[in-house]
Design a protein around this nucleic acid. Structure first.
Lengths: 138, 138
DNA sequence: GTGTCTGCAAAATATTTGCAAATTT
DNA sequence: AAATTTGCAAATATTTTGCAGACAC
C-alpha cells in the first residue's frame, strides 16, 4: 500500500496558519504567515501541500472571479461573497436549503458533489471608493 | 466626454466567437477561435477586450476553482457546475429563488450585486475515469 | 487630424516541477 | 534503510503592460 501521508512541521504549520489568517488566504499569504515559524519554507512546498489538503478534504479551494487561488479551512457549509473590486472574500452562513441535499444527484450530466452559494458584491472600503473615486481608484 | 468605445473587427470577432464556442471558454480558447477570422489578433488584445466587455456587462467572468479565467456570454440568470477533475463548466438554469431578490441588500458588510448558485461535481467523462482509472488518470 | 486600439514583445503574476539533500517512519 | 518530503531553481502557465504604428471616428 503506497503513499502514506507523513506528518511534517511544514504541513502542521500550514494548517495552523489558518488560525491566524482571517478570511480566505492565497498561497502567498499562507507562505508569508508560515515563514514566521519556518523561515526557510518554500512557496513550492506551500502549493504542494495545499493541493494535498484539498485532495484530502481538509481544505477547500474557493471559486474566485480572477486573481490567485484562495483557500478555506471552514468545514461547516457556507457560501462566499466576493468583492468585485478588490477580490476580498467573506464567508456567508449557508442555510441547509433544499439544494444542499443534492449530493449524488445528476445535474446537466454532472454528478453533484457539493452545492455552494455565491454572491458578488462590494465590500465596505470599496463601496466608499466607488462613491468618492480617489486618484488611486479603479 | 472621454473614452467612447470604438467598434473594431477584433471586438466584433471576440463576441461572435461565443456563438461557436460551447460552454465557457478561456481567453486562450477565444483567441484560437477568433484567429480563424483574424489570424493576426494577439492574445493581449483578447484579454484587454474581455476585460472591457466584463466592465460593460456584456460578458461575465465566471468563478472558477483554479485554472484560467472563463467567460460567459449568457445573459439569463443561471448558475454553474464545475468538474472538480477537469475544470469543465456547464450552465445550470437558476430558479429566481428568494436570494435572487437580494440585489442592493447588505450581507456581511458587503453590498450584494449578484447572487449565483454553484455546484462542484464530476462530469460524465471524468466519472468514468474515476471508476476505472487509466494509466493517464489523476 | 485626434485619440483609441492593435500587435508585438517584454514584464508581471501565478503555479508546477526536477532533483539532490533532509526528514519521517 | 526505504520512501516521502523539502528547498531551491528553473520551467510553465496566465495575465498585464509599454509602445510605435494602424485604425475608427
Amino acid at each position: 500500500m503506497p503513499n502514506p501521508v507523513r506528518r511534517t512541521r511544514q504541513r502542521e504549520a500550514i494548517l495552523a496558519a489558518f488560525d491566524d489568517l482571517p478570511g480566505h488566504p492565497t498561497a502567498e499569504e499562507i507562505h508569508a504567515a508560515v515563514r514566521a515559524a519556518l523561515p526557510r519554507i518554500s512557496l513550492g512546498t506551500v502549493y504542494r501541500n495545499l493541493e494535498i489538503f484539498v485532495q484530502e478534504g481538509r481544505l477547500r479551494r474557493i471559486a474566485v472571479y480572477g486573481g490567485p487561488a484562495r483557500f478555506d479551512c471552514n468545514a461547516s457549509p457556507h457560501g462566499h461573497i466576493q468583492c468585485v473590486r478588490c477580490g476580498r472574500v467573506r464567508d456567508v452562513p449557508q442555510s441547509p436549503s433544499p439544494p444542499g441535499a443534492l449530493r449524488g444527484a445528476r445535474l446537466g450530466g454532472f454528478t453533484i458533489l457539493e452545492t455552494r452559494h455565491h454572491w458578488l458584491g462590494l465590500c465596505a472600503p470599496c463601496r466608499r471608493e466607488e462613491r468618492a473615486p480617489s486618484r488611486t481608484g479603479r
